[in-house]
Write a protein that binds this DNA or RNA. Structure first.
Lengths: 152, 152
DNA sequence: ATAAAACTGGATATTCAGATCCAGATATGC
DNA sequence: GCATATCTGGATCTGAATATCCAGTTTTAT
């Protein structure tokens, strides 16, 4: 339901949570499995939204502009492709302009619900979840709970 | 967030709720403000999903296959473009196959939330809402509550 | 200084949802 | 039966999202 671009942006931000050093677009692309040339565009959007900082030149790359606890999923979504809320009647009916009809009200309520969920979810909270499968990591958490794949 | 096609399908079903007679694709297109030739395709999808019945020939057209109280928003969505739930790790990481990582879990939870909302909303319930702006109708409800547009 | 590393931004290519078109099939009224 | 109305389904067109490419700019290491 969300666009591919949003998925890419979220992967990039999650990958950047490892704050060892600046990640080059190329290295990030490998880690996130996103086409490198396209990821560059996505990173530019994230930079414009002040979610990541770009550093050119040797040893350059991208880092998060804020701690993961200060970045919500919604911010990332909005940086690349904001959820299009229904503001006015899609049919252009004047009478519906101020107050949406019940059909579009219902749809927009669903969008609002998603926005709210994303607005209250930080990247930090996602990374803090006790889930054996860590985002972007092929390996199970080291020393973590048992591997459900091999437990039979 | 939902596709244009879903919006069109919902408009068509709501329009068909007026059960006077069979609506031709052409008449429906006018009422719903959907490109006629494209609406035909959408109606075909709805027919394949057994939500509407098609009748060819003179005096033919489309009618709902079930009462509006038996048609949910989700059924209409699924007929034309099901919400793509995240079943397996989008990165193809084997370790995430059975259990999504926390990132994709979060996203899929949002999708599930929308699905649930749509599954519990029938077309009848939408039409029953006490909303002065009726779906697809340019006019305010006759004899209804005061017109907010002219109340100043 | 210079070369190499890395982002930037514009131009272009590809893909797919959205939209159109039309010949064929089917039903009805006369 | 025949003409007309209407859906059906395949072929095609269009435009926006996705993806690629590359020349230009900035930065750093040496």
């Amino acid at each position: 339901m969300l666009s591919q671009t949003v998925e890419y942006a979220l992967r990039a931000v999650v990958a950047l949570a490892e704050p060892d050093t600046a990640w080059t677009a190329h290295a990030l692309a490998a880690k996130t499995q996103v086409p490198a040339s396209y990821l560059s565009k996505v990173l530019q959007s994230l930079a414009k939204a002040d979610l990541v900082l770009a550093q050119r030149g040797r040893n350059g790359g991208f880092i998060l502009a804020k701690p993961t606890s200060a970045i919500t999923v919604l911010e990332v979504v909005n940086a690349v492709e904001p959820i299009e809320r229904i503001q006015t009647c899609p049919l252009g009916l004047a009478a519906h302009g101020v107050r949406l009809c019940s059909l579009h009200r219902k749809l927009d309520d669903a969008y609002a619900m998603v926005e709210r969920a994303f607005a209250t979810t930080t990247i930090a909270s996602i990374l803090a979840e006790p889930n054996p499968a860590r985002p972007l990591c092929a390996q199970q958490e080291k020393g973590g709970s048992l591997n459900v794949l091999h437990a039979h």
